[in-house]
C-alpha cells in the first residue's frame, strides 16, 4: 500500500492531491489513517495503532478501514495497484 506522494492534509481535515488537483474533506479518523499511511504503515499496523487510539472494537475498525482504503484508491490517493492488496 503506497500513498501518493505530496498529499497535503491540514489540521481541520482538508486533503489536497497535487497530482490530480482534487481536494477532499475528511474527519479525525480519516486524518489519522492518512497520517499512518504516510508513515508507511501497512493495514495490520494501522489497525493496531487505531485500536490504541479510539474507543471501538476491532471488527468495526477493520470494516471501516477497508472501506476507507477503497475510497482512497478510488480517488487515486492510494496507488491504485496497491489499494486492494494486503
Amino acid at each position: 500500500m503506497k500513498i501518493s506522494q505530496n498529499i497535503a492534509i491540514s489540521e481541520n481535515g482538508f486533503l489536497f492531491n497535487p497530482a490530480t488537483g482534487d481536494s477532499f474533506s475528511t474527519n479525525d479518523t480519516g486524518k489519522e489513517i492518512v497520517r499512518l499511511l504516510q508513515e508507511g504503515k501497512n493495514q495490520a499496523q494501522i489497525l493496531d495503532a487505531m485500536e490504541g487510539l479510539f474507543a471501538t472494537d476491532r471488527a468495526s475498525l477493520e470494516k471501516d478501514l477497508a472501506d476507507f482504503l477503497y475510497m482512497l484508491g478510488n480517488y487515486r490517493i492510494l496507488d491504485a495497484n496497491t489499494a486492494q492488496s494486503r
Binding site: 486533503l15 482534487d22 481536494s23 477532499f24 474533506s25 475528511t26 474527519n27 479525525d28 479518523t29 480519516g30 489519522e32 489513517i33 490504541g52 487510539l53 479510539f54 474507543a55 471501538t56 468495526s60 475498525l61 471501516d64 478501514l65 472501506d67 476507507f68 475510497m71 482512497l72 480517488y75
Partner: peptide, 17 residues
C-alpha cells in the same frame, strides 16, 4: 490516556462547481 470517541472515517470529494 483515555481513548478518543470513534467515528468511522469519512472522505468526501469537494467539487468546485
Amino acid at each position: 490516556m483515555s481513548k478518543r470517541t470513534y467515528e468511522r472515517p469519512y472522505l468526501r470529494k469537494l467539487n468546485a462547481g
